[in-house]
């Protein structure tokens, strides 16, 4: 099992996507189906951008097992007051500033759900959010 860990800085859009890009490189070296890699990376990128856009700071832990990839994204931030609403496409609480940078289209959580097999959300308003995503790697 390979374990990777990345610290994410809130508000730093310059670096947003850096962790996902690293994970992509690692997955490519493991000869995992490019279609699956793309899904994993898209899901992780959304989560990474969410931390940058909404939280003060956070961290991403990725564990690669022979049969699955688990991503745990933890942040200290405002939390999600209405998870059900946040799961709807187009729902966004992103600030104008964030939207002007091309983020905050309200596709974050829906994209994460769409591209992974399991998505668990633990969130507390005013404290932070933890997302756990799992993608199973199908073998032929």
């Amino acid at each position: 099992m390979v374990k990777l860990r990345y610290e994410i800085e809130g508000g730093n859009f310059d670096l947003a996507g850096g962790a996902s890009s690293q994970v992509k490189k690692v997955l490519k070296q493991l000869n995992i189906d490019p279609v699956l890699i793309k899904k994993i990376v898209v899901a992780m990128y959304e989560g990474e951008v969410n931390i940058v856009a909404h939280a003060y700071k956070g961290q991403i832990e990725v564990q690669i097992f022979p049969d699955r990839v688990e991503m745990k994204l933890t942040d200290e931030g405002p939390g999600i007051p209405d998870v059900e609403a946040a799961m709807k496409e187009g729902f966004s609480t992103a600030s104008q500033r964030v939207r002007e940078m091309g983020f905050g289209a309200g596709m974050g959580l829906p994209n994460m759900k769409k591209n992974t097999d399991e998505l668990r959300i633990e969130t507390e308003v005013g404290k932070g959010t933890t997302l756990i995503m799992t993608k199973y790697l199908a073998y032929e």
Binding site: M1, L30, N31, P66
Partner: peptide, 18 residues
């Protein structure tokens, strides 16, 4: 012609990468 640093077997590659 993908270049596989740790070979094409995902299981073994994972072990090598670790």
């Amino acid at each position: 012609r993908p270049l596989m640093l740790y070979g094409s077997d995902t299981f073994k590659a994972l072990e090598k990468m670790e």
